[in-house]
Nucleic acid binder design. Structure first.
Lengths: 210, 210
DNA sequence: GATAAATTCTAACTTGCGTTAGAATATCGA
DNA sequence: TCGATATTCTAACGCAAGTTAGAATTTATC
């Protein structure tokens, strides 16, 4: 799953770099730090020096694991989409009504956030190659479609109100992306309260039935 | 309102630049272009050359209107918050229940978007001075509080469900911020459909009452 | 139409940062 | 303990982009 995601598309061809099993751990550290910093400050503002410093390294050391900054970011996007897809797979496997799936999905994203840190879901990636951009784009669109399906299923089984799935998914995604930006600055915030707020806002609705 | 917003706080002190009434028009053009580009690519990736090119100028010409890139961005943030505050003022003046105000607010934000273009509401501003950051932060917090008040009023007058206003406001803001990023790439999307999707998602709720 | 002011341009300077080369250190098996 | 490999460091290079100085051009005023 980790590498088999994209079928031969744009995989790093020659990689004389860091294959040893031990160093993979450090690669993960770098990736996590990079994703976190890129997520908060953006690609251009995230310097190699800062990313390296986050795990007590010098900037040059990063080039032992990634050929360049762009490749590092690209790997970060792939990693994020892998996680997102893993969540989708788990939710789909769980079955249930459309609303059930949507509910489980929201919870799963929040839980994934605390475990794996912030991600680069749906974010800006204009700094990548055209080819890399297309790869991320098509993958993202495909994931979004699977999310839309939850809504369609819900509309079919009567658990979700009539709506335009494409638009609603984007609105939900907006909420979730935004979470990764402001929650770090909100101390004392539990995932339970957050989930409750999301369900109240998006599922049951803010408007009280009169 | 345009300049009197911040009471003497961090206003540009000496400004030998562009005071002539005629040139203010061009200043607005620059500001709008800068906000748009910064909003999509981030501050660091938004080059002065690109901003200038957006209105058929050379990068150096921008320094006739703004002392530097940071000041340009700061002005952009101020402009965005001014617009946001103007919307709030209008909504508050309209009266009605908490739900009514919330509804009108959502519509107003969408309409403002098409008229004035994308904004820098609540966005990243880590590239500003510490002082500038604090100014934007306190202003933003104050605006968010006024939004929370709509929810509190609604909870009091029975039009809005029980919730944590602070969290819900952030969720709504996330939806709205995210709008400015993906709607430009979605052709054939009317504001009406968008508003309907938002109201379905956030107000009446996606879950269908069983 | 001429002078002055306002606006924009060209060209060069400067700095920060991605990147590279090669030396230095750490890790590990025999 | 020693040699080999893996990992990280120091130092320097090159380029992109913010910035500046001053010339060139437009616009306004009389």
């Amino acid at each position: 799953m980790s590498k088999g995601g994209d079928p031969g598309l744009l995989t790093d061809e020659v990689r004389p770099l860091a294959q040893s099993q031990k160093s993979m751990k450090k690669r993960e550290e770098i990736l996590r730090a990079a994703i976190k910093i890129i997520n908060t400050k953006g690609f251009a503002a995230a310097t190699m020096t800062e990313i390296a410093a986050a795990i007590d390294l010098r900037d040059a050391a990063l080039y032992y694991y990634f050929p360049n900054k762009q490749a590092l970011a690209y790997a970060g996007h792939q990693r994020s989409l892998e996680r997102f897809e893993a969540i989708l797979i788990a939710v789909e496997a769980g079955g249930g009504t459309g609303l059930c799936k949507l509910r489980r999905f929201l919870r799963a994203v929040l839980e994934d956030g605390v475990v794996n840190g912030p991600q680069l879901y749906f974010g800006d990636h204009s700094y990548l190659d055209t080819a890399q951009q297309r790869a991320i784009d098509t993958w993202t669109v495909r994931l979004a479609k699977r999310l839309e399906r939850f809504l369609e299923e819900g509309m079919a089984d009567g658990t979700i109100a009539t709506c335009e799935p494409r638009l609603v998914v984007q609105l939900l995604v907006g909420m979730l992306i935004w979470l990764t930006k402001w929650t770090p600055t909100t101390p004392g915030l539990t995932n339970e309260r957050l989930l409750e707020a999301i369900e109240t806002t998006a599922l049951s609705g803010l408007a009280k039935p009169s």
